[in-house]
Simulated scan of single mutants.
Amino acid sequence: MAYPSDEVVITAVRAVAVRAPIETHVRTSFGIMRDRPAVFVEVEDDSGNRGLGEIWCNFPSVGAEHRARLVLETAGPLLQQLSPLPVGEVFARLMDKLHVLAIQSGEWGPLRQVCAGLDIACHDLAARRAGLPLYAYLDGQASGSVGAYASGIGPEAPAEVAARELARGHESFKLKVGFGMETDRRSLDAIRGAIGDRRLMIDANQGWNLDQAILHGRHFADYRLDWLEEPLRADRPLEEWRALSEAMPIAIAAGENMNAPAEFEAAIASRLFRFLQPDAAKWGGLSGCLAVARAARAAGLTYCPHYLGGGIGLLASAHLLAAAGGEGLLEIDTNPNPLRDNLIAGLMPLSGGRVTLSERPGIGLSGDLDGIVARAA
Results as ranks from 00 to 15, higher is better:
5 S>Y: 06
5 S>G: 04
6 D>N: 14
16 V>F: 03
19 R>C: 01
22 I>W: 06
27 R>Y: 15
28 T>F: 15
31 G>P: 00
36 R>P: 03
52 L>T: 02
54 E>M: 04
55 I>R: 03
58 N>G: 01
68 A>P: 04
72 L>A: 10
86 P>R: 15
86 P>H: 12
102 A>P: 15
103 I>S: 04
103 I>F: 14
105 S>F: 15
113 Q>H: 08
124 D>Q: 07
132 L>K: 15
133 P>G: 13
142 A>N: 06
162 A>T: 00
163 A>N: 05
175 L>I: 03
182 E>F: 00
194 A>P: 00
204 A>W: 01
204 A>N: 04
209 N>C: 10
209 N>A: 13
216 H>W: 06
223 Y>L: 01
224 R>Y: 03
241 W>F: 15
245 S>H: 15
252 I>Q: 03
252 I>F: 13
259 N>F: 15
259 N>A: 13
262 A>R: 10
268 I>A: 09
272 L>N: 07
281 A>Q: 02
283 W>Y: 12
284 G>L: 04
286 L>S: 04
287 S>W: 12
290 L>I: 11
291 A>N: 03
292 V>H: 06
298 A>I: 01
300 G>W: 12
301 L>D: 01
312 I>T: 08
320 L>P: 08
329 L>D: 00
331 E>W: 00
343 L>R: 11
353 G>R: 14
355 V>F: 11
363 I>H: 09
364 G>W: 09
365 L>T: 05
370 D>F: 01
371 G>C: 03
377 A>C: 11
